[in-house]
């Protein structure tokens, strides 16, 4: 059942809004999720959870929501994309797709932190946290004082480092499911939904709230080690 808070109200005063057709997607978690939003409601949704097939699923997902809603790509007015943090390879699929669509269709591309998308769907009184799987036994996480109020920047850490700082707060996202020893109170949702990303973006656009550029939140530097001194290939002489 949709929460009243999540139904978008038309702005007071009967302001005339330009028609909106927003394509939203997020690939920063195992979920490949796509939605189409007309500024009032979600017209179509597509979600598939498969951590290894972001590159294969996203484009057909976009085509699917357009065709479900009976709309043409040329009708799109905006693109919204989850900018992570999330595993890099999947994350980049969403970002490069968003930038390319924005470029080819000549429409703006808005970025939203993926943890904010999860938080937006949390139904919980009081503060909570969102944690997604960062692999390598780490989580991407942030604290929230409410579904739309993040408290600080997203970070990447070990669950056992984060747990004491959350002091038993409920935790949404796959990180809570994956590390039950650290997070006793797992809450929904586990994955972000593009419908929420779309709704959040439409609200931020309407209220003039800041959106992010379509830049990935990697939070980690690339793994690369500068080589040290050259290793000899010859065997040292035995003595």
């Amino acid at each position: 059942m949709p929460q009243p808070a999540r139904v978008r109200e038309r702005p007071a005063g009967g302001a005339i809004m330009a028609p909106v057709l927003l394509l939203a997607f997020d690939t920063a978690t195992p979920a490949v999720t796509v939605a189409l939003h007309d500024g009032v409601r979600v017209l179509a949704e597509y979600t598939e959870v498969d951590a290894r097939r972001h590159g294969e699923l996203l484009a057909p997902g976009i085509r699917a929501v357009l065709s479900q809603a009976g709309r043409d790509r040329l009708d799109l007015t905006d693109v919204a994309v989850g900018v992570g943090p999330g595993p890099f390879t999947g994350l980049r699929v969403g970002l490069v797709t968003a930038r390319v669509l924005g470029d080819a269709l000549g429409i703006p591309v808005h970025g939203v932190c993926t943890l904010d998308v999860l938080a937006f769907a949390v139904e919980c009184d009081g503060p909570f946290a969102v944690a997604t799987d960062a692999r390598r036994r780490e989580i991407y996480w942030a604290r929230y004082t409410g579904p739309q109020q993040r408290d600080g920047d997203p970070a990447v850490d070990w669950p056992q480092q984060v747990a004491p700082r959350l002091a038993g707060l409920p935790v949404a996202g796959e990180g809570a499911v994956k590390y039950p020893d650290a997070f006793a109170k797992a809450i929904e949702p586990v994955y972000p939904a593009a419908a929420d990303l779309a709704e959040l973006t439409v609200r931020r656009l309407a209220s003039g709230a800041a959106l992010l550029p379509p830049q990935p939140l990697y939070l980690r530097r690339p793994d690369a080690v500068e080589p040290g001194a050259r290793k000899p290939v010859s065997q040292p002489a035995l003595r």
Binding site: I62, T89, R92, V93, T97, L101
Partner: peptide, 20 residues
């Protein structure tokens, strides 16, 4: 390289979709 290839493949799909 898998991750590198994927950026190009996703970009190409984006242009193919947008340009039909």
């Amino acid at each position: 390289l898998a991750g590198a290839l994927l950026v190009g493949v996703a970009a190409a799909k984006g242009y193919a979709l947008a340009l039909d």
